[in-house]
Nucleic acid binder design. Structure first.
Lengths: 348, 348
DNA sequence: CTGAAAGCGCTTACAG
DNA sequence: CTGAAAGCGCTTACAG
């Protein structure tokens, strides 16, 4: 069981100073090329790797990025996490994850925790109420990149999707397809991405002289409860012939509700969902969704973060990137689409 | 922008030694209760938190656990990750994640990386070929908990699911339901959990005098390719009346293939899947799956890890925990189940 | 009960 | 081009 080597050990072995070894390791000038070669060979041979804790203590950097999302098991967030982790890794950074559960207190706690670990940068899908904590990070020159949503009072980099435009155009498409009484099922949430989706629905519907029908559901409601709520909403408003769901998990509850009520998806009731999911192609009938560009979101997040981390002193302006969504039209929004249920079930 | 306080600063402010402050912080005896109270109050007031890097350097502990899974965006792994992160957090530990992609080299790299970060313990769903690396960890007294699969030559804690029994009983159930030509679609993988599922299929089928029909698909094959492969497999073997898929992503490809071929799921072709997924309840018809106990797996992993971490010197025996799966019988395996497609599509 | 001091493994002025 | 030394913020023998 060989003990881990330190720079000092190596220096001793090679009859050099720790300075020389450290310089080689960090590619600093001021070392003869023979010394350099010797050190590199030796390091290779013994498999030396620096102790990150010591480096971190000394430099104040940890080569770690903290990432906080609502829920790491949500497919949207976990797909992004996967890409970011992979990319960060290639650039020499590690990622620490935390699930905020949209809880202000828990998130503030997590930020504290991450700070104690000397996390170099923060990638956050922010819940409301963490403004002060984030201000402190920014004041201390720690890079913060927001994604999925933002906090309007904070001046920092934002990687967002155009929730309004994506929702607006998609609801218009529903109207074009012949739906007359479009309802919306969304979260009771003050988060700006949710508000944008709701406002877009409102504008599209009102511009077409239709009436608004909105059901808000509390975040964290269990699936069964949501299903019940949606069922009673539908029963109380028989005129509804289409629903726009603001998140895919609400849609899953909604689909269950609709199936239980034996309504025919597509024909009797149209379904449009914000945030696509592989499953929407597999369910029968297939479900129309507004897809977010996962790969591009992830790339932008990590590139922005790496830029900030490598920045010397030059303060770049904060970036506000707004990415486009794509409407994936499927069977659930085609009025014309006729269900011979057999046909529906076994074709794609 | 207040600079971060150190123990030294606090000691100076309170006219104490750093020792006294440190003792209070760590709950060590040998400090008068007044001093203690004073320190605690002051810390509370200024919001002091220790620098983990310094602690880590000094103690060799980082309060961080490294978790390596095949793919953090896979729902099985991300659900477990979520629970573990949450629980670790409550016990004062952080989690660093890495996706191994089932790649030996990448995993060895990750272990190295984690070591440099002084990770205190390792939770791994091991790919093959990392035996040496894991041996080293164990030799250095670093706790390693395997889950989902194991490496037979390594003596360490294992939290596994009874892949064999779960698969065996479920295939028997298929046979009971009247299926005569049951095929298996699995990964070409030497991992023991995959081998167990295959062996269980083999035994169940052979014991009933039926013939084996196995199609292996390479891991990492893209979805479209898998769909094509499964289609040709079905075309070449018209007698197949049921398929057992060893993973849920293979099943998703399989379902696509079957839908394209316009075969009637349940009646013309039964489907059984290892590893349940929320979607299997939403697809029409619903899909029978062997569910793994996510919560229990997660709890066992984290409890085992925390035990190991808190262990003084007493070496406990390594644990081998084998958890039961549950067969969730749904429409896709009921021969008797008659499809009026309408009925199929809109009931649950 | 308390304090002065060493040392964890690095990096980086500083002096030669 | 090279070396001796300070210091990052902790913990913990050791001496009083």
């Amino acid at each position: 069981m060989k003990k881990k080597l330190s720079i000092g050990d190596i220096a001793k072995q090679l009859h050099l100073s720790t300075t020389a070894v450290s310089f080689v390791l960090n590619g600093k000038p001021g070392v003869s090329s023979e010394t350099k070669k010797m050190v590199l060979q030796y390091i290779e041979k013994v498999g030396y790797t620096p102790n990150r804790m010591a480096q971190g203590l000394r430099t104040g950097k940890s080569n770690t990025i903290g990432m906080m999302v609502e829920d790491i098991s949500d497919p949207f967030f976990s797909s992004i996490a996967r890409i970011i982790e992979e990319s960060a890794y290639r650039h020499g950074y590690r990622i620490i994850f935390g699930s905020t559960e949209n809880d202000t207190i828990k998130t503030i706690d997590l930020i504290q925790l991450f700070r104690n670990h000397q996390v170099d940068g923060y990638i956050i899908a922010p819940p409301p109420g963490i403004e002060n904590e984030v201000e402190k990070l920014i004041n201390d020159k720690l890079p913060v990149v927001f994604f999925d949503r933002t906090l309007s009072t904070i001046e920092t980099d934002n990687i967002l999707v155009d929730n309004f435009a994506g929702s607006y155009q998609s609801v218009l498409q529903l109207i074009k397809n012949g739906y007359k009484n479009i309802a919306m099922v969304t979260l009771s949430s003050e988060q700006n991405q949710m508000k944008d989706r709701l406002n877009a629905y409102r504008q599209a519907v009102e511009e077409n002289g239709m009436s608004l029908l909105v059901r808000k559901i509390t975040y964290h409601e269990d699936a069964e409860k949501s299903i019940k709520l949606i069922q009673s909403f539908l029963k109380a408003n028989k005129e509804i012939d289409a629903i726009f769901f603001s998140t895919n998990y609400l849609a899953f509850s909604g689909i269950q509700a609709i199936k239980r009520m034996k309504l025919e998806i597509g024909k009797e009731i149209g379904i449009l969902v914000f945030d696509d999911n592989l499953m929407f192609q597999l369910i029968s009938p297939t479900i129309t969704a507004i897809a977010q560009p996962i790969q591009e979101i992830s790339d932008r997040i990590i590139l922005t973060m790496l830029d900030r981390l490598s920045e010397s002193e030059t303060e770049l302006e904060t970036k506000n990137i707004l990415l486009r969504t794509t409407l994936m039209e499927r069977q659930s929004t085609s009025k014309k689409y006729i269900t011979s249920a057999h046909f529906v079930s076994f074709t794609t």
